[in-house]
Design a protein around this nucleic acid. Sequence first.
DNA 1: ATTTCTTTGGCAACCGCTTGCCAAAAATGC
DNA 2: GCATTTTTGGCAAGCGGTTGCCAAAGAAAT
Lengths: 331, 331
Amino acid sequence: MNEKAATIYDIAKLAGVNPSTVSRALSNPGRINAATEAKVHAAAKELNYRVNPFARALPTGKTKMIALMVADITNPVFFKVVRGAEKVAAEHGYTLVVAESFESSKVEADSLQRILPTVDGVIFGTTRLADAEIYEANREKPVVLINRLVEGVADVVPNNEPGIAEAIAHLAALGHKHIGFLGGPTASWINTDRWNLLMKHAVDAGMTVVSIGPNLPTVEGGRDALDQVRASGVSAIITYNDLMGIGLLRAATAAGVLIPQQLSIIGFDNIFGSDFTSPPLTTIEMPLEVIGGNAVLALLKTFEATDDAVPHGSNESTSLLVRGSTAEAKA
Amino acid sequence: MNEKAATIYDIAKLAGVNPSTVSRALSNPGRINAATEAKVHAAAKELNYRVNPFARALPTGKTKMIALMVADITNPVFFKVVRGAEKVAAEHGYTLVVAESFESSKVEADSLQRILPTVDGVIFGTTRLADAEIYEANREKPVVLINRLVEGVADVVPNNEPGIAEAIAHLAALGHKHIGFLGGPTASWINTDRWNLLMKHAVDAGMTVVSIGPNLPTVEGGRDALDQVRASGVSAIITYNDLMGIGLLRAATAAGVLIPQQLSIIGFDNIFGSDFTSPPLTTIEMPLEVIGGNAVLALLKTFEATDDAVPHGSNESTSLLVRGSTAEAKA
DNA sequence: ATTTCTTTGGCAACCGCTTGCCAAAAATGC
DNA sequence: GCATTTTTGGCAAGCGGTTGCCAAAGAAAT
């Protein structure tokens, strides 16, 4: 291994021009004579030349890399985001670096410090960082937040409303009158958003709605909520996310509660595996991949922005995906 | 944003020493006087200094970055690998860059070209590349292969045997006499390994065993195999991976075949969601996270290796995870 | 044909850090 | 107390690009 790579000096020699000409031919098309440019390109091809990104990054300060921080890469909610981001980044010639914070703000802060100097900007998929820390990072390199709002920092947040409206309409059509929301992390902006929207639409539809929890946004959190859900007397429940929905569904089935005959369940996100359950989970689908891609797009936009305007809320729409965990309310 | 970062020159000025002294104090502890070193560190801290990895990478050629290529990042098999790799990489001060090939060798080759110059080495999680291409890449930068063998290239491959032995013993204990293996990609080394091992142990246990497929290593691939599986007359089947196992299980249930009463199913990998099914899938667990971590370790080892010896087969062990999809063979 | 404007490509400085080489200073030996 | 060895830190040359500046050459204008 380790064949030393060709440099622009090698090309220059081969093509019989100055290294600066090579540089321009390669990274500034049109700046020099077309014939010379072609000659340089030919030499570059012959030498199998590839720019050294670091050498380029030094004077320009641009690394063509973007960081994406997530709390837990094994959380199925994130990997679609990662994929969307990776795809768009690659399309634009950027390399995506994903860092995992393992749900720890300490680890996250450390990773951030390590990675920040190497990238042109960072996307926080889910962050445990305080507003101040995010704000601080944003002073150094452009930042885009997913599902979170911090003053003066760009963000992309999906529009939960269409999906929730559909879900309520679906439930109303099935005759449900009293429903519940199984909440996730109270500090989460999106949890609050979902709950507020749910309340509004449920009330508009003439239903009563109660908030249950909050519980951990995991399968366990959903499982542990079963007793509360049963106690509440609701005939249908919308969970903060699919993980909780799945946990609740499985716990209910194990306890002999028939799903969906005795209890309708709607999750959120349409994660991988949410259709593996029996019955498959009805869920409000989030365009996770699009969100990831749009976060990259938002970041790219800030790169070329001359002013300090930050892009906000790309409003990706959500929609209801009806599967098997919802049915008519029992009389 | 964009506060210009402090450089070693700033530190040098503040500490009243030469930049080279700063450099040594920071990256070559012990090389200079302890008192001076402390002074430099203090100045660095005061200026909130962070090395510019690119500037460092230029003269040294070391970037402290590792690439991990996977075919499909949303495949649950991979993200545990990614996590394991990320974790170990971070522990050793390395940054992990994950690139997705979207199952295309063209995309993969392009990504590789783009990323290769920026990293110290690359791990191929799953690769569509030909042996020759891998060998070529390995000449340029150290390469570690997961679940694949290429002459002269380092690899980490798990030991499928313990898990398979357990699975066969389990099935034998349940009275199964005639079992099947639902195969995945025939070109895959691990598919062949699993099948060979399965054959050996089944025969040793006095069973007959047939290979069914090969099918796509997906939920759909498993689903589509139902007819073949039923036609084969086996009472138990081991699938190439969990995805296929899940697809088969769901298709069977939908077709009125009782699982596990009429057909026992064992998957491979223990992916996220493999316990969401009814019944939850019995599976042969792969230490995916460990494998990812070991791949990084293997790579780090080649970094410091003076000779050209390449580490091989770390032999992470597998084991059977009995859940609900296996039962006594029907009489 | 002369002047002016473009185009083209070379020169050299610089990006921030590392490191071989060397000399001054300090430590050690006799 | 002097010679020798070891420590310590400065100098300067890169690493591989980019880019402002400038001069030569060609094109356009008068």
